[in-house]
Design a protein around this nucleic acid. Sequence first.
DNA 1: AAGTGGTCTAGACCACGGC
DNA 2: CCGTGGTCTAGACCACTTC
Lengths: 240, 240
Amino acid sequence: MSITDQDTTPAYKRIMSAIQQQIDFGELKPGHAVTSERELAKIHGVSLMTARHALAGLEREGMVERRRGSGTFVAPPKIHFNKLMSYTEQMAGRSLSVRTRLLSMKVIGDAPEIAAHLLLPSTYRLLRFERLRLAGNEPFALETCYLPAEEFSTLSRDRLERGSLFSVLENDYGVKLSHADEEVDATAADPRLARTFGVPHGFPLLRIREVIYSAQSRPFLYVLGLYRADRHTLHIRRFR
Amino acid sequence: MSITDQDTTPAYKRIMSAIQQQIDFGELKPGHAVTSERELAKIHGVSLMTARHALAGLEREGMVERRRGSGTFVAPPKIHFNKLMSYTEQMAGRSLSVRTRLLSMKVIGDAPEIAAHLLLPSTYRLLRFERLRLAGNEPFALETCYLPAEEFSTLSRDRLERGSLFSVLENDYGVKLSHADEEVDATAADPRLARTFGVPHGFPLLRIREVIYSAQSRPFLYVLGLYRADRHTLHIRRFR
DNA sequence: AAGTGGTCTAGACCACGGC
DNA sequence: CCGTGGTCTAGACCACTTC
């Protein structure tokens, strides 16, 4: 950030970024005291209220804890509960070798229920593809994705097998992901699924139906996921 | 927060409560404009920053939306995603007649795994009780709860069958509930469960194991829930 | 142009924690 | 005791929306 920059960024956001960097770069570790309000005000040449605003923002994001009479401290690294993450992202932290195999990919026009979930006319053309997730050589998840075909017609098989769907959507298509609503229940493996997963007919599976919304609150991706219950557990945190 | 505790309550909290009441009492409905910052400041005799603080707090709670240049508006009623609620509370909004039958209740001392979840010694005495949830006359959920026996020795069968466990804990024992971590997977009904639910052996069930924490981040309640997958869906919202 | 929320100042007093 | 965060004042200017 140079002096010539016409810096329109609010002061409190700049202070937030500065502290965030200290944490990211490891200068401040969990438990360490963060520069106090009064010091921040002096250092950055702002009023106390502005320095407060910065710390309050970081607290809301869960980066720091504030203790009256004591100070502001870097919060312990949080497990990212209830975060919308792609499979690739979820696995990144766990050093598990997971492969993806693209089973099918085609444009369909007869999925009225799914079109309805995406707020599209019932005969709207959708791009559907199935991906099998394998740990080692053992399949443990089958995910079927549905996207509006027109918008994402340039999606290639290659990209889907290689990287994360989320990163393709965010980087190549500029989609801003906002949130997802999931419906979770249980089902039993029918003959086809039993064959796919290599489990007995009737084997319990976790079923997750998911509508993913863009930043404009527009639903644009529907995912039906089926997971071997013995190899997959869903973690949720609920707050009172 | 009541009107009688004006003495020590911060002004911004009083203003928040006042607006919250307007919403609760139906004077302000979703979409309606909330009193502006400047008006609130005049009305309550506080500075602009304090009025701002109140509206910012309500925004953080999701009660209002703020639109620059336009105003502050009552937010549409939010679906309570990812909220820690008792079964009774969940059903309250749905006009479903749900009954609870207490199947068993006893103190046990040989549940080391569950004691571990509650950060207690492996032979610690736990109060265990099973509750069957019925819609109409049809059972659709079986919940087994574990509590430290000493603290909750006065819990009566009567209270458990009558009201919500949460309300008993919060009102009678003064427990402040904070959050819960859940593990969700699927399983198949064994003979006993099949008989309990009146479903075939092997029927898919949703299984939720839940550790509930008090405000001091102390785990104090473990719940194992089994749900007929065809009568029960879990809803989750995830954010990016 | 009038009204709104967003940012910010330069102070103030209080309640609390640790020394 | 001193430093901390929590609350608050009485203004100010800006950016934005609506009319």
